[in-house]
């Protein structure tokens, strides 16, 4: 699948935003974060900013962004519609939760409940986003249970790493954040490893023989594609990343997305505050790079069945 930058940015940024929102809500409601207005502003603002920026970027992908409102109507069947509805729905409790925290210094009671609601909706939104992909039986690298888990895991992990930076910069750091960060990195890494192992072992369920129904006559090979130059489908679904290249990028993802943030987060536990803050910033930077690579690969390694017709 063609890795469109708007969609890569959307899923990674909003994923991180939702992850941050979830953790911030849990920590704040659980009293692990002080209800100070500036911190609230930065944390909730950052989360909503990432979410909003991501959502905005996703509209760049649309042919008719001015009609985006139509996308809220089909939540009965469409994961994309559900995602939209959930994303918007999240803003309400998230906004109230933010107001309580930032303006009233309150993260409990009604505002606490709003925080919980925001966290739940955020989680649901991330799952809805992932289900857009995971529900497509046409793309076997996506049509996997690990996909929503990975999305959620990566969202939480990026949220946790972000939270670690913010808390360190604000000097309100608690080891619980690091524990969550480390745990989520390990889990997400595991999930992603499992994902990659799975897709490497995937056997195609369809081939030219089943696609054309001509398999009964022997091996089928493409002689002539319908048009000599690439068409929309080939641009959109025909993207192929060279195997070697994919390996290298995966290694990069392992290092930048998981290994380095993990090392830095662990090392920061023992580091002096300033160094730890620098390390946390480093972890975020590394994670950002890793996440973009991971998401690029998520698209680039996905093969759409309609390309079978094109002999790919």
């Amino acid at each position: 699948m063609h890795p469109a930058y708007s969609v890569i940015f959307f899923t990674t940024a909003s994923g991180a935003g939702y992850g941050l929102l979830i953790l911030a809500a849990i920590f704040a409601v659980g009293g692990l974060l002080p209800a100070t207005s500036l911190l609230g502003f930065v944390v909730v603002g950052l989360a909503l900013g990432l979410i909003g920026g991501g959502l905005l970027s996703s509209t760049f992908h649309l042919g008719r962004p001015e009609r985006a409102i139509n996308a809220f109507s089909q939540w009965r069947t469409s994961w994309l519609s559900r995602e939209g509805v959930l994303a918007v729905a999240t803003f309400l409790p998230a906004g109230l939760f933010g107001i309580g925290w930032v303006f009233l210094g309150k993260t409990t009671g009604f505002f606490g409940w709003m925080g919980v609601a925001a966290a739940l909706l955020a989680g649901a939104t991330v799952i809805a986003t992932s289900m857009i992909y995971a529900s497509l039986s046409t793309i076997r690298q996506w049509n996997l249970a690990t996909v929503p888990v990975a999305y959620l895991g990566l969202g939480l992990m990026s949220g946790a790493v972000l939270l670690a930076v913010v808390t360190r910069l604000f000097g309100v750091h608690t080891p619980a954040v690091d524990v969550v960060a480390i745990a989520s990195i390990v889990i997400a890494w595991g999930v992603k490893l499992a994902y990659w192992t799975t897709i490497d072992r995937l056997q195609p369920t369809s081939d030219l023989g089943t696609a054309t129904g001509l398999g009964r006559f022997g091996a089928v090979r493409l002689l002539e594609q319908p048009h000599t130059e690439a068409n929309f489908l080939m641009h959109e679904m025909g993207f192929v990343v060279a195997r070697r290249h994919a390996r290298r990028l995966r290694s990069l993802a392992h290092v930048a997305l998981f290994a380095l943030p993990l090392m830095l987060t662990v090392a920061a536990l023992w580091a002096p505050a300033v160094t730890a803050a620098v390390m946390a910033v480093g972890a975020v930077g590394s994670l950002a790079v890793g996440l973009l690579v991971e998401r690029w690969l998520f698209f680039a390694e996905a093969r759409h069945d309609c390309m079978i017709w094109y002999g790919r």
Binding site: G63, R64, R67, E236
Partner: peptide
Amino acid sequence: KCIGCKLCSW
């Protein structure tokens, strides 16, 4: 009505 999200093509 279409917003051109291309999901149907996927």
